[in-house]
Each structure stands twice: as structure tokens, then as C-alpha cells.
Nucleic acid binder design. Structure first.
Lengths: 251, 251
DNA sequence: AATAAAATGATTGATTTTGATTGAAAGTGA
DNA sequence: TCACTTTCAATCAAAATCAATCATTTTATT
């Protein structure tokens, strides 16, 4: 049976059953469990299913909030692919910072570890994190209209009292010499402080952000690892790679 | 059976039975009591059920967004009547604190003044306030599962740096001699600090809260003005009136 | 056909989940 | 109050499942 054919049957099977074990799927498709596991991992990366211990479950995609969805939807899948990979970096018991923004929100459904501690400055994030049963801390600050990002000196000073294993930031501009940039200086301060408090930092950005320079500098390229999607040109990749680690996620 | 599958069946079983013992659930799902206990603890963390000694009980989902027609005067619930009157107390350009909780949320649709500045510790409040285009500040803290209240020492210390014209608090118990009380000590601290920072404080409570005493003390009766609905008995009204101002809203 | 690339299934040691056990805590009834 | 029963959280070993690896088979390319 062809791989794509098997994938289709797995999805069909799941649509009927809601959930299924690896063993069940193996019997239906007459493939080994190894193969099924590989399939399930691929399908999960494409956000078509949700992987659970022992099998897989359907993923119900819910409608996005209207205030946040004004941004062009063409990068949506890339965004989700990046978010999934980023979430996979998180280890059991980590303390992580989740920056406000649409990309980092996508990470939340994939945070399943109950021993995780998350700090965030994104209001939409908090509600989703609580639904997941994750221990969540919120920084102080002024709520920015539209995005729901908490900003200002209070946000920065709250952050100074926390320390993170990992920090995940959204970013508007990534440039070989100008580094990481974002339009709002207040948001830049928050991002900078979060980066400061973290052992390791990951910047999540789709291909459209490369070569762009926004108003406010956040940090130099070398201060974080970049996670991006596969639509990056070889030229861009090469330029960036000289300064920092860049992880390209197949989309 | 997969864990997610078992969780789903437990929820379904509970929806029919309202309550169930660990043993019952174990029989239905053919899992050991140890496993069921682990399941119930996880589901409780996600606020999907309520854990009780010996088993679990359904948790009634929070009320959905009131439609516009429900906001029209003739359908006003007591809670909404109180909230509307409370909102009317706010003057142009005031700086106010809105406590977390379902009653204070109801105030938000009635806050129309754009020159208002609101500080809150309720996550659901923030989203609604932003939709209204109101300048909103959020305190730091740990997000409490279910209610979305921000609590803890960080919340208290953030509040110390603000000063309010008016402060609106929800409350679980109002008692002539025991004063204002609420179940969670952490929440009590936050309420107490908010009261401390404010020129004038209003406690919003429906009739069912009178005579009740919860675990944690917040303040003495005289520290705030009470706003309540018309279902209050003459006896209760008289008792309270000796200590503080009480404003009864016709419902 | 020869070679390279990709997919598969089996195996391994590591991780996660599970069910049984235990002493502690909570509830029950005299 | 006191015994007695039930339920609980913590712990541990067994079972199930996992990711990683590797040899083999299948498919694609030249």
C-alpha cells in the first residue's frame, strides 16, 4: 500500500472512531507498528491528528478569534508546523516563557505535560493554557488592544523575578546584520527581558519575516535559535547560518 | 483503552449520572481504581469535573455570553442588575479596579467612557475590556484554574503600585460581625490589597451571600459599600446598615 | 541493469502507563 | 470520644508503548 493511501485510510478510520490505537490501525492497514508510528508522527506534524500515548485522536480545529485572525491566513500551516516543532523542544518539568502572538498560541495544544510551568504575557494564551490544565503565571502590564499582549515597565519588572529554561518569542523582522526587530518598542523591551531571563531562546518566524527590519531592536541574531518553515531561500538560510543556529521545519 | 478515550467515557458517564464513585467508573471503564483516581485528578485540574471523597461529580459549565436581547432590562438577573448599578457609579476619567469573578464581568458592557482606566486581576475581564476599547492594566500572578483569577504575592505587590478611585469586589460571604469573607486565602489577599489602594470600595453580592462566612477574612463591613439586589430580607438589611452603607438595587 | 534513495519491519533500550500495595487521612456509627 | 471502614496519595514493579537504529525490501533515477 502506498504511503499516501495509508495516510488517507488512517484519517478515514479516525474520523469514524474518534480515537484509535497503534495496534488497531496496524491491523486495518496491514502495516507494522513501526510504520504506523511513523505515519502518525507525520500526520501530527501536519496537524491532521493528535498523537496520544498508545495511539492517536482526531483534532477538532476550532475557529480562530476574530481579532487575531486579521493577519493573512496563507502562512497558517507553516505557522502551525513551526509551533508544533517548537512545542516538541519542551522537556518534562521545564519552566518556559511564551511570548504573546499568534505563532506561540499554536504551541499550546501540544503542551501536554502536566508538570510544565508556563509564564506568558499573552492574554489569549492564558485562557488556553488553563483549559489544558497547565500551571500558568501571567506578567503584569498594560493590555495592548487587539493582540492582548501585556507590555510596559511592569511587564519587564515582573519578568526579572522569573527564570526560564526555554523562551519562545514571536518576531516581525529577522535580518542578518540588524538582528531581531519588532514594531512596538514596548513589546521589544518585554521580549528582550524574557530572553535575558532564559537559558535558551527560540525565535519563531515564518519565511516572510526574513530580511525584514522593524522599528525596535530586540537582540542580535546570535542570542536565539531561529525556528522557521521550509519556504526559506537558500540565500537567506546561508546568510543567517553564519550568525546563529537556524532550524528549518518542513511544512 | 486509550487514556483520552477513557477520559471521554468518564465524562460521558458523569453527564448521565451527575455523580459516580471510583469503583463504578472502574467497572465501566475496566480500569483499576488507581488509574481512575489518576484520571479524575487530571480531569479536575482541567476543571472538567469536581473531585469528591469516594468519587467525582459534574461541574456545571460557566454561563455563556449573554446575547444582546438578554441584556435588555426585562431579562436582567439580580447579578446583572447589581452590575449595571455598580457601573453607573463610575465617573468620567476614573481609575478603577475590577476584581475577578462573574459579577464584575457583567459590569464591563456598561463601561462606555473611553477615558476610563481599569486595572483587573481577572483574565476573562481583560479580553472583554479590550473589546470595549478601554485602557486596561493587568496585575501579575498565578492564573487560577477555572476562574481565571490572578492570585499570589506577585498580584498583591503589583497592586501596591497602583491607586484607584473606585474598587469593585466580588465576595462570597457578608456577615454582620465576621465582615467580608471568601474561600481562597490567596484571593482574599488580593481583594484586601485592592481595597487598600482605593479611595472607595464597593462589594457586589447577591442576597444569597448575606449571613454567610467563608474561610478567609477580607475586611470589616465598614471598609466598603455593599451593592446588592432587592431580594434581601428587612432583618438582614437592618443588621448590615448599622455597620456600613448598603445600596439595594431593585431587580 | 546498476545504483541511489526511500520505505519498511524487526530489534533494542528507554520511557510511560498501569495495577497492586502500603501507611496515612477521611468518613462512619456507636 | 473511640474503634472500624473506606478512600486516598505515594510508591514500586510489571506491562505497554515509544524513539532510535539497522538490515532488508521496494521504488526511483541514471
Amino acid at each position: 500500500m502506498l504511503t499516501v493511501e495509508r495516510h488517507a485510510r488512517i484519517l478515514e478510520f479516525l474520523k469514524q472512531k474518534e480515537t484509535a490505537t497503534v495496534k488497531e490501525i496496524g491491523e486495518v492497514t496491514k502495516a507494522s507498528e513501526s510504520t504506523i508510528r511513523r505515519d502518525l508522527n507525520e500526520l501530527e506534524k501536519k496537524q491532521q491528528i493528535k498523537r496520544v500515548h498508545g495511539g492517536a485522536a482526531l483534532v477538532h480545529q476550532k475557529s480562530q478569534e476574530p481579532t487575531l485572525s486579521e493577519k493573512s491566513p496563507q502562512y497558517k500551516t507553516a505557522k502551525q508546523a513551526i509551533a508544533t516543532s517548537a512545542a516538541a523542544l519542551i522537556d518534562k518539568g521545564d519552566t518556559v516563557f511564551l511570548d504573546a502572538g499568534t505563532t506561540t498560541v499554536e504551541m499550546i495544544p501540544w503542551l501536554t505535560d502536566q508538570s510544565l510551568v508556563v509564564v506568558t504575557n499573552g492574554i489569549p494564551h492564558v485562557q488556553k493554557l488553563m483549559e489544558q490544565g497547565i500551571e500558568t503565571y501571567v506578567v503584569a502590564g498594560k493590555a495592548k488592544q487587539g493582540t492582548g499582549a501585556l507590555i510596559g515597565t511592569k511587564a519587564v519588572s515582573t519578568l526579572q523575578e522569573y527564570h526560564f529554561d526555554k523562551c519562545f518569542l514571536g518576531m516581525n523582522g529577522i535580518h542578518a546584520s540588524q538582528g531581531y526587530t519588532t514594531p512596538d518598542p514596548e513589546e521589544a523591551s518585554v521580549k528582550r527581558q524574557a530572553l535575558e531571563q532564559s537559558q535558551s531562546t527560540y525565535v519563531l518566524a515564518d519565511a516572510s519575516k526574513f530580511g525584514e527590519v522593524s522599528f525596535s531592536s530586540v537582540a542580535a541574531l546570535s542570542d536565539a535559535t531561529i525556528m522557521t518553515s521550509g519556504e526559506l531561500s537558500a540565500q537567506q538560510h546561508k546568510e543567517i547560518k553564519q550568525s546563529t543556529t537556524i532550524k528549518v521545519v518542513p511544512s
